[in-house]
Design a binder for these strands. Structure first.
Lengths: 215, 215
DNA sequence: TTGAAATTCAAACGGCTGTTTGAAGCGAAA
DNA sequence: TTTCGCTTCAAACAGCCGTTTGAATTTCAA
């Protein structure tokens, strides 16, 4: 169909611009937050016209929605740590694996790290867009943490206790990743290379393991 | 001296305006952050003229500096938990006391809670004003945490290990206080009354105690 | 090559920002 | 009562914000 071809070809060019805008927006929103990140800066980084955001995404909010969608997918879909893999390990092994995986952004400051920064912004000032996202299902980092801690807790534990322990575990790596830049400066001066990461994983695994094993 | 009287009386009126502005600014910056909190909203809440901020504080930044100064003093000067008190307790008692004290804002959402929110904003986008503040001395919550964990760690522990453990402990109550509003909503739905606070303190004390005691 | 649809573009819009300005109000000393 | 600082005030300033607009350009089927 000529009509379909038109749509396909047109959308190819569209996808190039859209991808560039989403990539630029991810970096900008990660650095300045949603309110602080301006459309002018995003379009400038993406080498696109200001109006492109409204043309392709209906506005700044629509673009942000796409960024959150990509971030969520990156955490949900990629197989870098799935539930089955955790279950196959011993409780101790699963705990260590969990901590190691979510501390990785400390040394590999990549795309995932930008997504975590966006989540950090959302923890200070939640946007309705993001709230709608997590309302449908808790972020993966929490679901996996619950899976890990449940293997340590007795069957009869109250759901409140499970939630406390799950949050307690989940926020440990989140803290170090989120605060990495601040911790690198005085008075802490923690520089995270591969070795330091291993030592941190060792320390946190030990602390959490003994804490959880006592239940 | 007539000159002194002039100064005194003039500064009395000045102090009223200054105090109202600082109070309003604390609330606004806590809710919207430094960038997001507008001078117009602050002066409106303080029932002062817009220009008053520049007249009394030299600008928005000067007003923010005063807010941070008050926040720092509230944490540093008040005797609601001092180092000597911690040292007088058993290691376990000190740990519990520490967690309880810094989880209190969960149920008493007061001025201290607003200060914590400002610190949360700073953790996402540190301002130079705040960085200069904490560079001169680590916040009290970290100094006390170090004091608590040092009693569990062997003498020969590396300073890195001490720092890891200290941060690990310190961010536990900070997380729950900072995320209180989010945790109150689905999918977590944690409402913190006095009883729930006690249960949380119990859980965290148990988890941390067993973790630290293993060193 | 023509024509119509999709996309880009520069410019402008209204609104909000922090700050500046110069006059007006005020209280106490002379 | 007059005078003189200190403080307040409404208005205006320049600048950035997200969005809209309508024309120019590009794209590609016919």
């Amino acid at each position: 169909m000529s009509n379909l071809d038109q749509v396909r070809v047109a959308s190819r060019s569209t996808e190039v611009t859209r991808a560039a805008l989403i990539k630029a927006a991810t970096a900008v929103f990660a650095e300045y937050g949603y309110d602080g990140g301006s459309v002018r800066l995003i379009t400038q980084k993406a080498m696109a016209n200001q109006a492109a955001v409204n043309y392709h995404f209906g506005g700044k909010d629509g673009l942000y929605r796409e960024v959150l969608l990509a971030a969520t997918r990156a955490f949900e879909e990629n197989a870098f740590l799935d539930a089955e893999e955790l279950d196959a390990l011993s409780p101790e092994g699963a705990l260590r694996r969990y901590l190691h995986q979510f501390l990785l952004p400390l040394v590999k400051r990549d795309r995932v790290c930008r997504y975590l920064r966006i989540f950090a912004w959302e923890s200070v000032k939640p946007s309705e867009t993001f709230s709608a996202f997590i309302a449908q299902s808790p972020p993966r980092i929490f679901r996996l943490a619950e899976r890990v801690v449940r293997r340590f807790l007795p069957q009869e534990s109250s759901s409140e206790t499970v939630t406390f322990a799950m949050l307690w575990l989940a926020q440990q790596p989140m803290f170090f990743v989120r605060e990495a830049e601040r911790l690198a400066k005085p008075p802490f001066s923690l520089k995270f290379d591969d070795d330091a990461l291993e030592r941190l994983v060792d320390t946190l695994t030990g602390l959490s393991l003994r804490g959880l094993a006592g239940f």
